[in-house]
């Protein structure tokens, strides 16, 4: 699914590197969790995987395609749910999805069919013609996920998809992700909610200071570090110091 090797990135005007030789391999069709404290390099890693940011050096392969050579092929096969609500707030959810669907080259019929299906699935069909700016936080998060699903990506990348949402919305999102994975799709997921990651992910990589700290499945990691929860493993490996 994903192979990252010796990835380096220092932003212009930044005093410290964001990634310092990050190497992670997530093979097969899995739900992978990319965890780390603030400033660990999670968003930079995702931005490089999506082709939004260029790495200084290193190699990245997504679904077998090299990001340096086949960026467009990767973009066709991945769906990205960014941390921010990347939708037009003054447009309705239907208008947003229609535009995104057309940019992905979907036919009008396909857009209508998928929009109807996902709006129903995520409980937004009654708000189909309501402007995004009038949505609650949970509704916005759900609409944000639908926008990444219209072209049925093989790999769904989610950057903190449940941040700031109510319990019901979070439950709906997590249920959907499990079902989507069950349909043969891969998922890469970042979150600060470690309990959620523990429930959802087959494989977890904890990164800090732009490097891999540890990787494995949640049960193995807890056993290896003699911890009762993933949160304890996380604190044990990344420390108790508050990060900015």
């Amino acid at each position: 699914m994903l192979a990252i090797s010796q990835l380096y990135k220092t932003y212009r005007q930044a005093s410290e590197p964001s990634l310092s030789g990050l190497t992670i391999d997530f093979p097969g069709n899995i739900i992978a969790g990319l965890l780390g404290p603030n400033g660990a390099g999670k968003t930079t890693t995702i931005s490089i995987l999506c082709g939004l940011v260029k790495a200084d050096s290193g190699s990245v392969k997504v679904l077998g395609y090299d990001i340096a050579e086949d960026k467009e092929e990767i973009k066709k096969r991945i769906g990205v749910v960014p941390q921010s609500i990347a939708l037009y707030p003054t447009l309705t959810v239907t208008e947003n999805l229609e535009y995104i669907g057309k940019l992905y080259g979907l036919t009008n019929a396909a857009i209508r069919q998928k929009t109807g299906r996902y709006l129903h699935l995520f409980g937004l069909e009654k708000s189909a013609h309501k402007a995004i700016r009038h949505f609650s936080g949970g509704m916005k998060r759900r609409a944000n996920i639908i926008a990444a699903l219209l072209h049925e990506p093989r790999l769904l990348i989610l950057d903190e998809p449940t941040a700031g949402v109510d319990v019901q919305s979070r439950n709906m999102i997590l249920q959907f992700l499990k079902e989507y994975h069950g349909q043969g799709h891969s998922i890469l997921y970042t979150s600060h909610l470690l309990e959620e990651a523990q429930q959802l992910c087959n494989e977890i990589a904890i990164i800090d200071h732009g490097k891999l700290v540890v990787k494995g499945n949640p049960a193995e990691l807890m056993e290896k570090n003699q911890c009762s929860s993933l949160e304890q493993v996380f604190l044990h490996l990344t420390g108790y110091t508050v990060r900015d």
Binding site: G51, L52, K75, P82, I85, A86, L87, P89, I100, L103
Partner: peptide, 18 residues
């Protein structure tokens, strides 16, 4: 600021046409 530009840049194909 809102992120819709990022959404567009995630879409395959030339950004030039958009």
């Amino acid at each position: 600021e809102e992120g819709s530009l990022m959404r567009i840049r995630l879409i395959p194909g030339s950004y030039f046409s958009i």
